[in-house]
């Protein structure tokens, strides 16, 4: 039994401090951001349900909801709410489009180097462009 319980060697050659210095290919960026955006959406889920709640509760709570984006709510300024919603918008868009890319890859087996590179770049770019457009509307630039 002694031999069975012997410590096994563990090869962990990536440390968090090293990850920062890594240069990922576009598909790798989409992949890790898919995870990051998913985790962000999970963490912000109570906020989303709260938005759902105040916007649908009644005419009065709907006023509170729209006013939160103008004058803030309680001690939370409107700018912070808009910033969090902007984060939500990006996370949703990136997660959504990266998910469509997954489904498309599953369905068409377009998993070659070139296909995955192009679709990854499209995913990164389209989610960012849409975020900028919607963010501009959110912050009143459009």
């Amino acid at each position: 039994m002694a031999e069975d319980t012997k410590e096994r060697p563990v090869y962990r050659n990536i440390h968090v401090t090293q990850i920062v210095g890594y240069s990922l290919p576009p598909a790798g960026m989409v992949s890790i951001l898919h995870r990051v955006s998913g985790a962000l959406l999970f963490l912000l889920l109570p906020f989303v349900v709260w938005l759902f709640d105040v916007s649908l509760g009644s005419e009065i709570s709907y006023e509170r909801f729209s006013n939160a984006f103008v004058a803030g709510i309680g001690f939370v300024p409107a700018g912070l709410i808009k910033l969090v919603v902007l984060g939500l918008i990006w996370a949703y868009l990136h997660h959504f489009i990266a998910g469509l890319r997954h489904l498309w890859m599953d369905a068409t087996h377009s998993v070659g180097k070139q296909h995955s590179r192009v679709s990854a770049l499209i995913t990164l770019a389209s989610s960012l462009v849409l975020t900028v457009v919607l963010g501009a509307r959110l912050f009143g630039f459009l």
């Binding site: 889920l45 109570p46 989303v48 349900v49 759902f52 649908l56 509760g57």
Partner: peptide
């Protein structure tokens, strides 16, 4: 995670069915 998700889901259903 399970508590978080079930809590949010229950809350959202409550909003919906009101």
């Amino acid at each position: 995670t399970i508590v978080w998700l079930l809590g949010c889901a229950g809350w959202a259903v409550q909003v919906l069915w009101r």
